[in-house]
Design a protein around this nucleic acid. Structure first.
Lengths: 364, 364
DNA sequence: CTGAAAGCGCTAACAA
DNA sequence: TTGTTAGCGCTTTCAG
């Protein structure tokens, strides 16, 4: 087994400074600085020579010194409440991707839950002195007053809502999912979710109501909400919830919308146990099913956490570079990704209904 | 939908400097510096006053300035090839945890695959000027020559092997899993893995051989190796592999060891389709099943990526603080976590065998 | 216990 | 095109 001893090879390589390079090249430090950063006002041959020497010496500017001189750290902070949750992981990856090759580094601040000690004063404030801008992953990652404080601090920042949050994007996603199912002809749906704000719920119900009248022209559309306790054991909770639901007397839903991959997996497993075929006997939809959902061939509504985070980071960078002409990040509407887990309900036969308006999955 | 506009409230809060605090407190900057960092040689009342004023002003030292003055950045770099993969996510979380409250920040370097452009010169070298030490997640994340270069650079670093790598820890885990199954009485095993180095394979076979003679005293122990292409679609690949295996004529294994959660899930699903009951008809084991594996009630061998990374980070910190008395991180041996997915093979009846030596799951 | 002063390594005017 | 010269905001001797 690898013995993770700290390797600290006491090398005689005290990192070369800009002066070493300047001396070796026979120029001033100012010229080296310009040459290395690709600024103008350096003769081509000089530049080449300096670059070669720097390379040979293994020179790289000290971030602290440069930062102190410029007042910029050339790094952005990413605040997240999780790195294990695939959604957040995907977002972090997006941010990292946006920074690649831009000579910016990414400082990760992991704030597991908001109940932890007064955090802004310590962690966030400290972070603010190390980064030029902040990308906050998840609308619930920071408390309201923390966001306020951020606002007041004047630090450029963007908050990206992620899965399961009480924001409109969540509602959008659920609506898109339900629309898909309604169009397939389902009239008895269940929505397994991890909790919905009152606002989202109302919006959702409104959306459902709209479909009930305009798409279906029937009041037959039924939507059962089932709350699944998230995080530890979402899968298990979802399994029990499904079993419970199926054990109830009366009619069963013909389709279930799941707020996450985990929940969908629970339903999938338990439906298998119950002898149901997917999608013939039961349609299952996911939301944000990037990794698991894809492997499971789950029809899903995806919201591109990766891309959204990448674009958030890009906006931040653009804002930092003073690019006033920055177009705001495109709003990625939730997009329908039809895979294998949904179909028209058995016996209905109709594959799709005329769409209510000219809305489709791409519409906002 | 949240419009992720960059908020940059042009606040009139130009971050206060140490001089502002010094002036307000009527002391010199030197005293403020000492007071804030909790150094001695400051009278208690003075200290309190300074702290209060700093607090009121929202002062925090500029990382760049402090870094330039001390030659330390107070941040460590975490190099990883993934943030979506739960294993790596868990490790990143461990590192973050170790840094919490220590006033160190974590700079994340995401190096997706080694095929990408010459990376050390750019990314890694640059990173080296921004951090005091490096925690490398995954033995395969850096190329051999990159590690060499790291070595030469004198930067303290630790490499932590993660899942699916051709290191001994991987072998350890597999061996532990197989031992468990053999002890349950299984004699026909399959090992679904994402590729094994020749060395690991030999070690594994040796381990199996050992069990064959000492634990079982029979040459009946059969081990089929099935290679599952990882990452995109591990689940799907695993399902097909299972189906194929089950379609083959002849005897079937009574237990399957899976190198990851994903693979195990594939087997689980397909076994369900085949009408097999788990664990009665088939035992399934996972490796490193932290999140998914847990929800699935999979018996697994866990290797504590989180803890290992946390301890790696701690060692690094200790080394940086010049703590020469640092005990090296405890070696977490892979540990058996028995859940619901394994049992004695049907018809065998015997629940366990006498153990070969006094080895148990805790042994190295 | 406190303060004055000399940098840390780089950048950014301004001169040359 | 290049060099000179001030700092950037903090830490850290070394005197007081």
């Amino acid at each position: 087994m690898i013995l993770p001893a700290v390797r600290a090879t006491r090398a005689h390589h005290p990192k070369p400074s800009i002066e070493d390079v300047a001396a070796a090249a026979g120029v001033s430090t100012a010229t080296v600085s310009r040459a290395i950063r690709g600024l103008p006002r350096v003769a081509q041959p000089t530049r080449t020579r300096i670059l070669e020497i720097a390379q040979a010496l293994g020179y790289a500017a000290s971030a602290s010194a440069a930062g102190l001189a410029t007042g910029k750290t050339r790094s952005i902070g990413v605040v997240t409440s999780s790195v294990r949750h695939p959604d957040y992981g995907a977002a972090v990856e997006g941010a990292a991707r946006a920074l690649r090759g831009r000579d910016y580094s990414l400082v990760l601040l992991h704030l597991p839950d908001s109940s932890a000690s007064p955090r802004f004063p310590r962690d966030l404030n400290m972070l603010c002195r190390r980064v030029d801008a902040l990308l906050v992953l998840g609308a619930a990652t920071l408390e309201k007053d923390e966001i306020d404080q951020l606002q007041r601090s004047g630090m450029p920042h963007i908050v990206i809502g992620l899965h399961g949050e009480q924001d409109d994007s969540d509602l959008d996603a659920a609506t898109t999912a339900i629309r898909h199912l309604v169009q397939l002809g389902h009239t008895d749906l269940a929505f397994f979710h991890g909790g919905l704000g009152a606002q989202s719920r109302n919006g959702l119900l409104a959306a459902v109501r709209e479909h009930r009248t305009s798409a279906l022209n029937a009041d037959g559309l039924k939507l059962r909400e089932v709350r699944i306790e998230d995080q530890p054991g979402a899968i298990r909770n979802s399994r029990t919830a499904f079993s419970l639901l199926w054990a109830e007397p009366g009619s069963k839903p013909t389709a279930i919308v799941c707020a996450s991959d985990q929940i969908a997996l629970g339903v999938l497993l338990e439906a298998g146990n119950a002898g149901l075929r997917i999608p013939e006997d039961l349609s299952i939809m996911g939301i944000d099913g990037q990794d698991l959902g894809k492997s499971l061939e789950l029809t899903t509504v995806i919201r591109y956490s990766t891309r959204r985070a990448a674009e958030g980071a890009q906006s931040l960078l653009a804002a930092l570079e003073g690019d006033r002409s920055v177009t705001h990040p495109a709003l990625w509407s939730p997009e329908l990704m039809i895979r294998q887990s949904t179909a028209a309900p058995q016996g209905t036969g109709r594959q799709s209904l005329p769409m209510p308006q000219q809305k489709n999955s791409k519409s906002v």
